[in-house]
Design a protein around this nucleic acid. Structure first.
Lengths: 328, 328
DNA sequence: TATCCGAATTGGATCGTTCAAGACGGCGAG
DNA sequence: CTCGCCGTCTTGAACGATCCAATTCGGATA
């Protein structure tokens, strides 16, 4: 049974005091080069690792950040969260942080979970995915001065807290331009009901780009809750009323429905989705792709900025790209 | 600024010693009813929560379990992990544990991560998703007597360690019976190359069921790496050589390819996939569905069995179900 | 040679909890 | 009446790290 290696073991082995070992770890510059080397050798020789619990008790910092894993609503869009979480775990790891998962069924329970996590584990920060108008969660966290970042901008006030987001309007704009370049004029849009920040943003990119190209978008859009069946229904509706030659959708779910509706049409109708989910890749659907790994990385950057330094972090807006496949 | 509430604060408030408060939390039966009530009232009145770091330092237990989040290989199958992780987080939470994420690109790095996590965070247990013949990870963990459970049985020796798995053979058998009942006789199977435990298991369920029904499976199967394109290629190959009336696949990816291949055929060819991914749900693909939430729950059960009690846990094999949609 | 200075190092206290051992009062048995 | 035991509660120590104040040491200066 190998005895547990503590900071005292290292100190004895390197013939210095505990404090010197601690300094090598936390403030290397104040230790003489030669001494530091001896300590570092001892650390590797013994395989010493600082006990996080003991460190946390003294410093009050856990090097733990929490992220929510959702109940896989749609599932198609669940993969966005999945990829984001993977990126988050990877980048956080590189920065010396670990990701702790939690779930909650509603805002109230989520806030109770924050309270619990902060009380028992002394979490350093939270990463929230998705925000809405008047989000009670961000208000709660901000009030208690708990560090957090959101993936998704705060739609109420852009300077409310640090955030990272993907420019949805730029994504739909790029998709619309791509269709315009291919000769399309009657480009329809299927999105979500007005009032969701994300949905309105994506619609705006399409609308503004059409207008800039001299095309009147009036009548060429429909709104609905997300879902494959809804996408199919509204596409049939659009086809009958407006004869579009291309359909741009606010999500891959909607686009999948659109594909069912335009199947076997001649001449073919182009379809573009949003999120570049595995489904899109699998069936060859052109889709707007979010740089999720980078978004996660920037979230970690912002958090470490708040936690380690004391700089005021500036929001990050990332540009999506268009994953071209054979539906457009 | 509300002062930090520690066990001493509670003790003072309830006019007992620290240890008595600790006993109320950890061994309520040795505290007199009246005293216990007074302490519990103080706890709720003050909003006390035990500091996990301090507790961990004394007991050596962190109430943290680690799970790996993978780099979303296929993406389609990534959603299986996603749903499993959600279930794990939820059940672990109910049992008083939290889930910590980690990633690793290969077995060696994964083992290094175990070492790191155990050294710095003193993790209580690991949950591994997927195992293979001669898995070095399980060997490493077992050697050091680190508690762990795998989702996926150990293909070398079934009693090597606690595990939870879904009976893949039962799933493909049910799918095959469903097709037989519908009048099909020439039921083909597209699976993975021999040698993977999971793949061989799923193939066996199909083969044995056909034989039991008096159908010779010879020639009716193909093997390939996973992927939509491969599924399409092999289905075309099968259609040309063997004229099957139904195709059963080892994954939804393969089934998606099969659907592309059989499109527009008359009479239609039935297709069934495996995993019941969101893609299957979205496009109406009949698929074998794994009870992921339950699998996660049973993993937590096994772990708490090992951690809290000292019972020897027995492996769990769960039955999948068939999600009937319109492709079969 | 004595004094001083700052860099480097040391020992002790501390974070919040649980463990080990002991104190206290009441009760039944000898 | 005294002893020992049991149930109940209290006290001091320990977990492993960091913070703080004090001390050592080498070298430069007076």
């Amino acid at each position: 049974m190998p005895e547990k290696v503590t900071i005292a073991t290292v100190a004895r082995h390197a013939r210095v005091s505990r404090q010197t070992v601690s300094n090598v770890l936390n403030a290397p510059h104040i230790v003489r080069q030669e001494t530091r080397q001896r300590v570092e050798d001892a650390i590797t020789a013994l395989g010493y690792r600082a006990n996080q619990a003991a460190r946390q008790m003294r410093t009050g910092r856990s090097r733990l950040i929490a992220a929510r894993i959702e109940p896989t609503r749609d599932g198609i869009n669940g993969s966005v969260l999945d990829r984001f979480l993977h990126g988050l775990t990877e980048t956080a790891d590189a920065a010396g942080y670990r990701v702790l998962l939690y779930t909650a069924t509603d805002d109230e329970r989520e806030i109770a979970t924050y309270d619990d996590l902060l009380g028992t584990y002394e979490l350093d920060a939270f990463v929230l995915v998705g925000t809405k108008y008047g989000d009670p969660r961000t208000a709660w966290l901000a009030e208690r001065e708990v560090p957090f970042v959101t993936f998704g901008r705060p739609w109420d006030a852009l300077d409310a807290h640090p955030w990272v987001d993907v420019d949805g309007a730029a994504g739909t704009a790029a998709a619309t331009r791509h269709l315009l370049d291919a000769g399309h004029r009657r480009i329809a849009f299927i999105g979500w009901p007005t009032g969701s920040g994300v949905g309105d943003d994506r619609r705006a990119g399409w609308r503004d780009t059409l207008r800039a190209a001299g095309v009147d978008p009036a009548g060429l859009h429909r709104e609905t809750e997300d879902g494959v069946a809804e996408g199919e229904r509204l596409t049939r509706d659009l086809l009958a009323a407006e004869t579009p030659t291309a359909v741009l959708c606010a999500s891959d779910s909607l686009a999948l429905g659109a594909l069912q509706a335009i199947r076997d049409l001649d001449p073919p109708v182009s379809v573009i989705g949003f999120d570049d989910t595995p489904v899109a890749a699998a069936i060859g659907l052109t889709s707007v792709s979010q740089p999720l790994a980078e978004a996660a990385a920037r979230c970690v950057d912002l958090l470490t900025g708040v936690l380690d330094g004391n700089q005021t972090p500036t929001p990050v807006l990332l540009a999506p790209s268009l994953a071209l496949r054979h539906t457009a």
